[in-house]
Design a protein around this nucleic acid. Sequence first.
DNA 1: TCTTGACTTAGAGTATACTCCAACTTTTAA
DNA 2: TTAAAAGTTGGAGTATACTCTAAGTCAAGA
Lengths: 157, 157
Amino acid sequence: MSEFYTIHDVAQRTGISAYTLRYYDKEGLLTFVKRSESGIRLFSEADFEPLYTITVLKKSGMPIKEIREFMKLYLRGNETIHERLLMFQEHKKNLQKKIDELNAMMAIVDYKCWYFEEAEKHNDINYYMELKEDEIDPKIKDFMKTVEDFRSGKKAG
Amino acid sequence: MSEFYTIHDVAQRTGISAYTLRYYDKEGLLTFVKRSESGIRLFSEADFEPLYTITVLKKSGMPIKEIREFMKLYLRGNETIHERLLMFQEHKKNLQKKIDELNAMMAIVDYKCWYFEEAEKHNDINYYMELKEDEIDPKIKDFMKTVEDFRSGKKAG
DNA sequence: TCTTGACTTAGAGTATACTCCAACTTTTAA
DNA sequence: TTAAAAGTTGGAGTATACTCTAAGTCAAGA
């Protein structure tokens, strides 16, 4: 009963393939993993925490190069706490921006779903063109304005 | 004063580079764009709507191959309203999943920011180890449990 | 007419993140 | 002991989405 995990143990437990783990190592993300005398990776209990942190950074969109910079700081221990805090605060800002953008996209996708339902009722993708100005749903007018802003080169909307 | 836009007009207005627009065309996304007799792309006023829709699908994470399928349906007009509705509903589901995941990651990144602040105060990245069990903040225990679930191969958490 | 600049295409190059293979070594179990 | 299983590395291959270059065509003004 070894106190270490092999790369396949870790792969099976975490769902990260052994190929990917080796790739991460090659890219300098797994510098905390010990090796046996013959060079075999020995993952310890404690290694799962930084590995989990890597998956969180990964899933939240941080590129591998940046994760590597974080892992360099991690290795240096207490002297880099402040730098790591700053890195995470910066990452948090970026992540919030991304979430905000996706929520904005969701609003449009949601509108499109509604619109296709209306169009289906009328059996005409341009049914609103037959309507009088004041009969057109404001949602449609808003969308048309957004497209118009897009055409005229305005960022917002 | 032509009633058409050149590829560079469109590039400048939309912020999508001419290279990218040509790439999208090559990939079958811009089948709605007319051509002059000599083969020059003639973007019309009306083309900005499907182009905007492409950017929304793109920004919300739909791969180009899928956007192409949508554009094929778009070209066929009224007969594909229902299919397009189904496509958007499916995409909406995927997008919601992605937003949910990012929000979950945000919670962890947020915790990490808090933890680094605490660690900075104590000048020790493992300060909680010095504390008695009941002095450790529940947030830390929750995080440790999440890492433990990760190590033991449990999906959730 | 001719030059300049914008347009076209095919195809090569870049970046990111894997994913896999070949060749070899180490570990494990009959 | 020895064969299979599992580990290692370097490097090639894949997929996605651009990004750019080369070679050529087209359009508009001096």
